[in-house]
């Protein structure tokens, strides 16, 4: 009885905060905030961080963490960019091969992470710290630190195009979010992920193949990075090691803000989406006000602490009742 109630409260707190932030931004930006251009801008910016956050979230649900998501995305993006460059003669084949390679690379890195965590037994944070450093390094070696840029219009459409006025990356994000939600709530694997996050010993003794589930978890996380990579190289029209490094800790922040427990076992896609929208509202709103993006970062941190404090206070009250 107790747990669902706390969870409900957390989402409510977050929703209230989102609405408050939205109202404040609308008032402060009088008339500029709810314009088509601003909303469209937000819809283009959100997906990158959003897809990466989904990749972070799924690992956190099993009680782990994946520090290598950005390195994976860059590695996959660079591989795709190299293929695109090599196959410029045949654009269609080029794009298809690039997408395939992108997902293949990111998936393999994901499986490698899974292997290190599940079979070798390294703590997730260290395993992925190692792979993060390793693949950042490989990316630098492959590109020699240079930028690979200039893609065909078809590639640019992935990150910059719109379908019926809806930005294409947003559609990709919605697709990923729905897929992730289905995976987590409707499949055996998804259920096992939550259970491993709550108590891995219990799952082991109830006949769940923990290692296999962990492999799948990190595979899914890697694939999310791969999809994010496609959006990123298209939006930047280039690929390079080190792109989006600042996203890493923000994805953890967004996931936790969305109710994902860093100890594992809890978290829903809907909560994460609400938290992503809140963060995006803050950053777009402040951007319109010409506030430094660093102040926005500071405010993200502040909001984070505030939400956690409120949750803690609710938590202790519920416990007392």
């Amino acid at each position: 009885m107790k747990l669902p109630r706390i969870k409900k409260n957390e989402t409510t707190v977050l929703l209230v905060i989102m609405v408050l932030v939205a109202l404040i931004m609308i008032v402060m930006n009088s008339g500029m905030f709810l314009t088509y251009n601003n909303l469209k801008g937000m819809a283009f910016q959100l997906p990158e961080l959003g897809i990466l956050t989904l990749g972070m979230m799924v690992v956190m649900i099993t009680g782990g963490i994946n520090l290598s998501i950005i390195a994976t995305a860059n590695m996959a993006g660079i591989s795709a960019a190299l293929i695109l460059k090599a196959m410029e003669g045949s654009p269609t084949m080029g794009i298809l091969t690039a997408m395939l390679v992108c997902l293949l690379v990111s998936g393999s890195i994901g499986l490698f992470n899974g292997f290190l965590v599940a079979y070798v037994g390294i703590t997730p944070i260290l395993a992925t710290l190692g792979t993060m450093t390793l693949f950042n390094g490989v990316a630098i070696v492959v590109t020699e630190g240079y930028v690979i840029s200039g893609f065909s219009p078809a590639v640019l459409f992935i990150g910059n195009g719109s379908v019926w006025g809806i930005p294409f990356p947003l559609l990709i994000f919605i697709g990923c979010a729905i897929a992730m939600s289905v995976l987590l709530r409707k499949t055996r694997t998804g259920f096992s992920m939550y259970m491993i996050g709550s108590n891995s010993m219990a799952t082991k003794f109830s006949g769940i193949h923990n290692n296999a589930v962990l492999m799948r978890t990190y595979l899914v996380s890697g694939l999310c990075s791969g999809v994010a990579a496609l959006v990123m190289i298209s939006r930047f029209n280039s690929a390079k090691s080190g792109y989006g490094n600042s996203y890493l800790l923000v994805t953890i922040l967004a996931a936790v803000l969305g109710g994902v427990s860093s100890d594992g076992g809890f978290g829903r896609v809907s909560g994460v989406v609400v938290s992503l929208v809140t963060l995006q509202l803050l950053s777009s709103g402040f951007n319109l006000l010409r506030v430094s993006s660093f102040l926005t970062t500071a405010i993200w941190g502040f909001v984070m602490i505030t939400v956690m404090i409120i949750n803690n206070i609710i938590d202790t009250k519920v416990k007392r009742v």
């Binding site: 500071a298 502040f302 984070m304």
Partner: peptide, 10 residues
């Protein structure tokens, strides 16, 4: 992570 963002941002 939150305080890092807060401190560094400020």
């Amino acid at each position: 992570i939150a305080t890092m963002n807060l401190y560094y941002g400020l």
